[in-house]
């Protein structure tokens, strides 16, 4: 690993990259990073982005598994709606879906009599829940398609063997079918998680305070154009690094037979 880096050509590149970073730091305006107000905002923003990513991936995958199963092996009255759902989600921009949910559906709620007094009103008014809902649906749509392929890709002999042993259908699903499908899908899932992370800044457009919204706030307050954007890029790069490392570790934990 280290040997690959210590080639003269790569050393020159690293040197230039460090030089650029130092230039950015010396000639850029970074004083806003020292203001406690912004430090607090940045911490909140990063926390919101990361928790949004984790929550929506979990909820989305929980929906994607039945969606994939319905498309791979379900009867037509389950398979067709699942296909339609995945097509709808994958065929329209996420930004538009979020707008439709928050402004469109959200604007219909106040018309329902008595809803303002109900228990759910604080939830129905909060952009955060719309963001969680919208992003989870998006994960469900894309990952439902991925899971369809994964369920179909499990070798038929495995399922037949389980059936021949008299395994009940539910046990077969939990012990044989799902684990093997998830194993197959793990490399894809890493990439999909990065894609999902890259989709999270869109929630700023419906007033959720994620790290992107924070950088916009800083830019508006201080009239600095580039530096907050560079900080953003750095934050997202680090999150990507963490995701890639996590999935690398996960993949290594599961032994694979290589020919």
């Amino acid at each position: 690993m280290l040997k690959a880096v210590l080639i003269p050509r790569r050393l020159v590149m690293i040197f230039i990259a460090l030089g650029l970073l130092v230039l950015c730091f010396v000639y850029g305006r970074w004083d806003w990073l020292l203001v406690p107000k912004y430090q607090k905002l940045i911490a909140t923003g990063v926390w919101n982005t990361v928790s949004l990513l984790i929550i929506t991936m979990a909820l989305g995958m929980a929906m994607a598994i039945p969606l994939g199963l319905a498309q791979a092996a379900g009867p037509w009255y389950l398979a067709r709606p699942a296909q339609l759902f995945c097509g709808l989600i994958r065929g329209t921009p996420l930004l538009l879906q979020l707008f439709l949910l928050y402004y469109g559906v959200g604007s219909l709620f106040p018309g329902i009599p008595g809803i303002r007094e109900s228990l759910f009103w604080p939830i129905l008014r909060d952009a955060w829940y719309f963001a969680v809902f919208g992003l989870s649906l998006s994960v469900a749509g894309y990952e439902g398609e991925v899971m369809r392929g994964a369920f179909k890709g499990v070798p038929h002999g495995q399922l037949e063997a389980a059936k021949a042993m008299g395994m009940p259908r539910l046990t077969l699903f939990w012990r044989i079918w799902l684990p093997q499908a998830l194993h197959r899908v793990l490399p894809t899932l890493g990439g999909e998680t990065v894609l999902q992370m890259k989709a999270t800044p869109l929630v700023a457009m419906i007033t959720v305070t994620d790290i992107y919204a924070v950088s916009n706030r800083v830019r508006a307050d201080t009239l600095i154009i580039y530096e907050p954007l560079l900080m953003l890029a750095l934050v997202y790069l680090s999150i990507t690094g963490c995701i890639v490392a996590l999935f690398w570790w996960l993949e290594r934990r599961i032994p694979t037979r290589t020919a």
Partner: peptide, 20 residues
């Protein structure tokens, strides 16, 4: 470097940076 950087940073931010 080009493909890794572009694929790791959200399009929204790339659009803003490149646009400006």
């Amino acid at each position: 470097i080009y493909t890794t950087l572009v694929r790791a940073v959200p399009e929204l931010i790339l659009i803003l940076i490149l646009y400006f």
